Amino acid sequence: MPMNTPDTKNSASVIHRRELLKLTGAGVAAFGAVSISNPFKAKAQNMSKQWDKVFPLSDKIDHEKITFKNRYGITLSGDLYLPKDRAGGRLPALAVGGPFGAVKEQSSGLYAQTMAERGFVALAFDPSYTGESGGEPRNLASPDINTEDFSAAVDYLGLHAAVDRERIGVIGICGWGGMALNAVAADKRVKAVVASTMYDMTRVMSKGYNDSVTPEQRAQTLEQLGRQRWTDAENGAPAYQPPYNDLHGGEAQFLVDYHDYYRTPRGYHARAVNSGNSWTQTTPLSFMNMPILTYIAEISPRPILFIHGEKTHSRYFSETAFAAAAEPKELMIIPGASHTDLYDKVDVIPFDKLTSFFNQHLAA
């Protein structure tokens, strides 16, 4: 997220940088983003009882709305998908999270339901402070707490009567791909992990796209975020960034792609941060000094599968993480695919590969 410094002279560059900043939220203070009201206060105990996913319910699975608590005492809301024709034995299970700014009714739920059709117990969940999960203030992210959310999902799955706790895997999508890798590096209970169309949110928020932020720009961002804390403390509530994924013309293609998913019937969900809601202005603070992939090599000897589209702005996240990871590891590049193609296009997402990967590495 390159910063728009006061002496920037290239107006085209300013517009481009502005749009990148809106995506990650790291430089909102630099643009004087106004405070907007918290769009909703959905809590886990107020979970919708209606099928409100952006994908149809499969007749091959059983579905349950569930809740569980993380180590910080926050109640998380999840959708549990189980194979309908399961036998009495315990099954392998998957915890599924992401993308960053999405809810379980979107991409993670689609992945979870599809994997349940293929024989896995799969749990898609809303991260802390978002969707139907608890936590105040709303629409806040934390690399520590959101990493913990994955391990809390593993807690839940390991106690479920239908699950073999020695056969649990994780799928992280987009920004939760990085969170998933961080969680699995520390949580040795997880036997295999997939990172699909992965973002390292700590890297992009602290260094910008393609690591383009200068030390001076980083210092300016931290100065502005620190002063925003005083404003929030004085007001007794956080300020929020402008609505996410609005288009005004001239945006980079990947921003158009985000809009096409989050702001159209294809993927819109009222509770999603990215569907016209917003993160708190100070959300980037906890990401600035927290490189979550530092210990990625410690996932070994458990396997990692990276999946990324060929034609994506984010491909370098998976490629550099793959290089830093230890064997066994695999990087699968999907020809012609964009970043958001791997959110919901079932003819592009390599579900056969996901199935064979977890069948192999979560074998009884």
Rank of each mutant, 00 (worst) to 15 (best):
S300G: 05
L159Q: 09
A29M: 08
P137K: 06
E251I: 08
V190E: 00
S11H: 08
D126E: 11
S11V: 12
G309M: 02
S128W: 10
A162C: 13
D164Y: 10
S286N: 13
Q253R: 09
L222F: 11
L80F: 06
N4L: 07
P291N: 03
K329L: 12
L23H: 13
H63M: 14
V256L: 09
R227P: 02
T283E: 04
A122H: 08
I36C: 10
F351H: 09
N38Q: 10
G177C: 07
L285E: 14
K41W: 06
M288W: 12
G249N: 07
N146P: 06
P2T: 14
P2V: 03
S275K: 08
E310C: 02
L110Q: 04
L57R: 11
L181K: 01
G208Q: 00
A233M: 04
W176I: 02
L23W: 10
K207Y: 07
D257C: 05
G89Q: 13
D246C: 03
K9M: 15
S77G: 13
W279P: 02
M332S: 15
L225M: 08
A122R: 01
L94N: 01
K43L: 13
Q228R: 15
G226I: 06
G73K: 08
S151K: 04
G78K: 00
E327Q: 15
I61L: 15
T197C: 07
W279G: 02
C174Y: 02
N289L: 06
H313V: 12
G250S: 08
I61N: 01
L285S: 13
D155G: 04
N210T: 12
I66W: 03
T221C: 04
V346D: 05
E310I: 13
D7H: 14
Q281D: 14
I74W: 00
V194P: 00
E132N: 11
K329S: 09
L225S: 00
S338N: 09
R165G: 10
A237Q: 10
K207N: 12
L222R: 06
G134T: 15
P303F: 09
T130S: 15
G109S: 05
S206M: 15
F40A: 11
T282V: 09
K345R: 12
L21W: 05
Q241D: 10
A297Q: 02
G169N: 07
T197R: 13
H308P: 00
P238R: 01
G134R: 00
L354F: 11
K22A: 14
R302I: 14
K49W: 10
H361N: 14
N10K: 12
D232Y: 13
M205K: 13
D260W: 09
G101A: 08
N10C: 11
S318I: 02
V348H: 11
K311T: 07
F125Q: 04
G226D: 10
N277T: 10
V190L: 11
G134N: 07
W51T: 09
K69N: 15
